[in-house]
Design a protein around this nucleic acid. Structure first.
Lengths: 204, 204
DNA sequence: ATATATACTTTGATTGATCAAAATAGTAAA
DNA sequence: TTTACTATTTTGATCAATCAAAGTATATAT
């Protein structure tokens, strides 16, 4: 008897052929080709499971898909219900370079409009760092991980200040009573922001 | 590709097969299929010309292409010289709905970053100037309208010299026999270029 | 245990895209 | 006119994707 563990990560051929909308025979031959190319492991009459290589591109596709969905909703204002199909088309056409520019433009969002986490460039789904700029002490330097707020005006402000993912930020002052934090990025002018806004910046 | 479709008169099969990077025999059979589907008229051993239906989709593709190029430069900040290839991929994947949202987001621009007019939704296009830098006399000043060549090296050169759409250019010398024209832009150093290159710059 | 149903694989045929090479038409040169 | 050249078309073959239908293994029910 096949246990759950043995069957664990494998996807049955029936699912594959249904998902791809092809006959079972076609699914079998597609899967064999993909195994030849190293994308997945095929266990006849049991199913398929992705190889490391396969998982990597799958994660990348998920990243593409979710970033595009975010763009379609946040920037272009499409309805959340119609973005899936649109993103499905675009995710195959967009280059890595354009994707990363888009990510930057959006402020490296952590979640897509459906609330699904967006995998990082490296292919891992980040668990949210709980550290925000708000609770950083004066004198220390942190790296921006992401901007939680998706509001395009806030993102514009962040971009203006170069308060972008990956940037090193020095905390000059943090005045709890005044509810304000003063920051410096690279060689630029220091600037201040309220705790309410600082809370929207995740850092490590 | 777009260039071929833009031209109203017949395009020789040699051009078609070269542009699509297929053997002449393949071009012939592709063209026959496209005639069957009503995209173009095929005159054996003479060439092809688009039908009204074919022209309509070609114009739509041009609109897609140029709106996307505008987006890539204006919004995402990609380099001027690398957008052509990126847009070529995306123009086939983007839906009509997303395209119109993008147009709205960009503020319905009339010209793309190269200075080329963007066809309207209805498919009409403002006819570009037929005047090129090549046939400008010494002493006069013109405004760059657009750059015809999409080659990224040429675009890089143009940007270096600030030979960009909208710029005023003074023609210092134009030596027909030597096949060279000398230009000055703003307060910068004058520079020269051959007629072959000057021919690629549309001016008014 | 045996029979039956279900899920999957194999087989064989079809279709469409493509190419290389041979055939042909149209054009320029002698 | 005849010849030679060039562009284009035709032909025949290959390859990959796909499907329908037949065959096979595995699970389920009796």
């Amino acid at each position: 008897m096949v246990t759950l563990e043995e069957n664990g990560s494998k996807v049955a051929m029936g699912k594959v052929s249904a998902e791809l909308a092809v006959t079972p025979g076609t699914a079998t031959s597609m899967v064999k080709n993909m195994e030849r190319d190293g994308w997945l492991k095929y266990y006849p009459r049991q199913g398929v499971s992705l190889t490391r290589k396969g998982k990597k591109v799958a994660m990348n596709m998920l990243r593409r898909h979710r970033l595009l969905e975010t763009f379609l909703v946040e920037t272009l204002g499409l309805d959340w219900s119609e973005i899936h199909i649109e993103a499905e088309e675009l995710e195959h056409a967009i280059s890595e370079k354009v994707l990363e520019k888009l990510d930057e433009f959006l402020g490296s969002p952590r979640y897509d409009p459906h609330g699904h986490p967006i995998p990082s460039k490296g292919g891992t789904i980040q668990r949210p760092s709980s550290q925000t700029l708000q609770n950083c002490d004066a004198g220390i330097t942190v790296r921006v991980e992401s901007i939680l707020d998706q509001d395009s005006d806030f993102l514009k402000f962040a971009r203006e200040k170069e308060l972008l993912p990956g940037k090193a930020v020095s905390v000059i002052k943090s005045e709890k009573l005044a509810d304000v934090i003063t920051l410096k990025i690279d060689g630029r002018e220091p600037f201040s922001m309220g705790f309410r806004s600082a809370e929207k910046i995740l850092v490590v």
